[in-house]
Amino acid sequence: MLSYLHAFHAGNFADVQKHAALSLALTMMQAKKSAIACFDTHAGSARYDLRSERARKTAEADAGVQVLWRIREQLACSDWEPVLKVLAEDNPGDGPLQDYPGSPAWFARLSRPGDVVTAFELHPAEERQLAGWANEAGVKVRHEDGLKGLLKCLPPPQPRMLTLIDPSYEIKSDYEAVAHTLARAWKKCRHGVYLVWYPILTSGLEQKLTEVLQTSGAVRKVLKSEVTLDQPPERGMVGSGMLIINPPWGFDERLGAMMADLHGPGRLGLSHGMEWLIPE
Results as ranks from 00 to 15, higher is better:
5 L>N: 12
5 L>F: 13
5 L>C: 04
6 H>W: 05
7 A>E: 05
8 F>W: 12
8 F>I: 11
9 H>M: 13
10 A>S: 08
12 N>G: 06
12 N>Q: 08
14 A>D: 03
17 Q>F: 02
18 K>Q: 06
21 A>L: 08
21 A>F: 03
22 L>A: 09
26 L>C: 08
26 L>P: 00
27 T>H: 14
35 A>R: 07
36 I>P: 04
40 D>R: 02
43 A>L: 08
44 G>H: 02
45 S>C: 11
45 S>G: 12
48 Y>E: 06
49 D>H: 06
49 D>S: 10
52 S>R: 04
53 E>K: 14
54 R>M: 15
57 K>F: 07
60 E>G: 05
61 A>G: 12
61 A>Q: 03
64 G>I: 02
65 V>G: 00
65 V>N: 00
67 V>W: 01
67 V>F: 04
67 V>A: 05
72 R>Y: 01
74 Q>W: 06
74 Q>M: 10
77 C>D: 15
79 D>T: 13
79 D>F: 14
80 W>I: 00
83 V>Q: 04
83 V>E: 02
86 V>Q: 08
89 E>P: 02
89 E>K: 12
91 N>I: 04
93 G>M: 09
93 G>T: 09
94 D>K: 13
96 P>S: 09
96 P>R: 12
97 L>T: 01
98 Q>D: 12
101 P>H: 06
102 G>W: 00
104 P>T: 01
107 F>V: 09
109 R>Q: 12
111 S>F: 00
113 P>W: 10
120 F>E: 07
120 F>W: 05
122 L>E: 03
122 L>Q: 06
123 H>L: 12
123 H>W: 05
125 A>W: 08
125 A>M: 12
126 E>F: 07
131 A>F: 07
131 A>T: 09
133 W>K: 06
134 A>G: 05
134 A>S: 13
135 N>F: 13
138 G>W: 12
138 G>E: 07
143 H>M: 08
152 K>T: 05
152 K>D: 10
156 P>N: 09
157 P>H: 11
162 L>M: 11
167 P>S: 09
168 S>C: 05
171 I>P: 00
174 D>V: 00
174 D>P: 02
176 E>R: 15
177 A>G: 10
178 V>S: 08
180 H>V: 11
187 K>P: 03
198 Y>G: 03
199 P>T: 08
201 L>S: 07
204 G>P: 07
209 L>N: 02
219 V>D: 05
222 V>W: 15
226 E>W: 02
227 V>N: 11
229 L>A: 11
230 D>E: 15
238 V>M: 13
240 S>F: 00
240 S>V: 03
240 S>G: 14
245 I>K: 00
248 P>W: 12
248 P>T: 02
249 W>A: 08
250 G>L: 13
255 L>M: 10
256 G>H: 11
260 A>E: 11
261 D>K: 01
264 G>C: 10
264 G>A: 10
264 G>D: 10
267 R>V: 10
269 G>Q: 10
272 H>S: 15
272 H>F: 11
272 H>P: 04
275 E>S: 13
